[in-house]
């Protein structure tokens, strides 16, 4: 069985790197990390990942929600938001993108893996 492709969208390099290592250690295939909304849209377009771990506040003009919103217009990819600001949990714009879950940083590993497992088909 082919491991699932996961896209990490994270403007904080260290956090992104840590996340990538954790997922890889669990056997997932992690695509190159996108640090802006624009990159996230492009990589999604290019590789069509099975799951996106999306930070909300990103560098550049497009934030995570906007990026997820644009991606969802062409592709059906489950999205898990990971954000430091818990205010977004009730953000209407965010809810409109129908995410799998909104996780608040810092995320416990066990909780994260549990959610990923649920989000991926099979």
């Amino acid at each position: 069985m082919k491991p699932a492709n996961i896209l990490i969208v994270e403007d904080e390099t260290i956090v992104g790197m840590d996340l990538k290592l954790k997922l890889q250690s669990r056997g997932y295939n992690v695509l190159e990390t996108a640090s802006t909304g624009q990159e996230a849209i492009e990589i999604s377009n290019k590789y069509n990942p099975d799951l996106i771990l999306m930070d909300i506040i990103l560098d550049g003009n497009i934030d995570g929600i906007e990026a997820a919103s644009q991606i969802s217009t062409r592709q059906q990819i489950p999205i898990i938001y990971i954000t430091g600001n818990s205010d977004f949990v009730i953000d209407e714009r965010l809810l409109a993108t129908q995410p799998v879950e909104v996780l608040i940083k810092p995320v416990h590993d066990l909780q994260l893996f549990e959610i990923i497992k649920q989000a991926l088909p099979n």
Partner: peptide
């Protein structure tokens, strides 16, 4: 946001 982010960065750093 910054504090949480930084904490996350710290956690990630410590993991690494």
């Amino acid at each position: 946001h910054r504090v949480k982010n930084n904490m996350n960065v710290l956690i990630s750093l410590l993991h690494l």
